[in-house]
């Protein structure tokens, strides 16, 4: 009984920890901008300082922010797709093939995972403006791919190692063509891993800030985190806290949806193969 109380308390603590700041940002997004300018302390909007959904409609009416959403979704999706594709090839080789340089690949991936991105943005900015992809989608997609590859390769090779590849041969013996064997046997087994790697990669690209502010300068490519930090409200001298909060909530919705749908897979991806033995 005592243990049960302790456990329940623990669960409540975890839920509070995780959700209180989220609740706060939602609550803040309902404070009116006038109340913010004038100062409106407290967790909940004051009775006279409630904005309803005005902040949301303002944010969604903001052309720059709408562009940022499109940029973020487009760039993150393309980077994720390409990164997972390339990582799948590499992870397959690492998990199933013997070849020279395997160690080099894994070392490179590890070093890049630890790389301080800030030390790259200067030269990268220089390089990008020389070859003309500064402030474009490819200008962000390429670094996102590079920096998500390690994560994707490690996750995928961990998954691929668990796949019983002999089943493919077994299926072929049973009369399936090699394509059928691959599609009916291997794809279903590999899909969860690919999927998990894709989600984690997407999270990374969605979250990135350093590249986002350094390699863009207009809404042609500026992603959401950069747009948030440059957000302009009615009052250029005060951060439009409640508008920003509304924008932040909007930017978090895709994350919440992904988490709700795939929480099991994400946890598996983060932990499976993270630690062996």
């Amino acid at each position: 009984m005592k243990q049960k109380i302790g456990l329940t308390t623990g669960i409540l603590l975890i839920l509070t920890w995780c959700l209180l700041p989220v609740a706060w940002i939602i609550s803040l997004s309902f404070k009116s901008q006038e109340a913010i300018t004038n100062g409106s302390p407290g967790f909940f909007p004051s009775p006279g300082g409630t904005a309803g959904f005005a902040n949301y409609s303002d944010v969604l009416a903001d052309e720059q922010f709408r562009r940022a959403i499109i940029n973020s979704i487009g760039i993150s999706l393309i980077a994720t797709t390409l990164s997972v594709l390339i990582a799948t090839l590499a992870a397959y080789a690492i998990a199933r093939l013997e070849f020279q340089g395997k160690k080099f690949v894994l070392t490179t991936a590890l070093v890049i995972a630890m790389f301080p991105v800030v030390s790259l943005v200067g030269p990268l900015f220089d390089l990008w403006r020389t070859i003309g992809i500064y402030d474009t989608w490819p200008g962000l997609i390429i670094p996102y791919m590079s920096f998500t590859l390690p994560l994707a390769i490690w996750t995928l090779s961990a998954f691929f190692r668990e796949i019983p590849w002999e089943m493919e041969q077994a299926a072929q013996v049973d009369g399936a063509t090699s394509w059928q064997a691959f599609r009916k046997v291997i794809v279903p087994l590999a899909a969860p891993g690919v999927f998990t790697a894709a989600i984690l990669t997407f999270f990374f690209a969605w979250n990135d800030f350093v590249f986002g502010i350094s390699l863009t300068s207009t809404e042609a490519a500026r992603p959401i985190p950069a747009a948030l930090s440059f957000f302009v409200g009615a009052d250029p001298f005060n951060r439009p806290a409640s508008l920003l909060a509304a924008a932040a909530v909007v930017a978090t919705i895709p994350i919440v949806i992904i988490v709700l749908l795939f929480q099991r897979k994400i946890v598996a991806g983060l932990t499976s193969g993270a630690v062996k033995g």
Partner: peptide, 19 residues
Amino acid sequence: IRTSILIPYGIITVVSGFA
């Protein structure tokens, strides 16, 4: 619990900073 704990993980750092 799993869903809740993944929300801070997935949230944009900039958003966390603002919050």
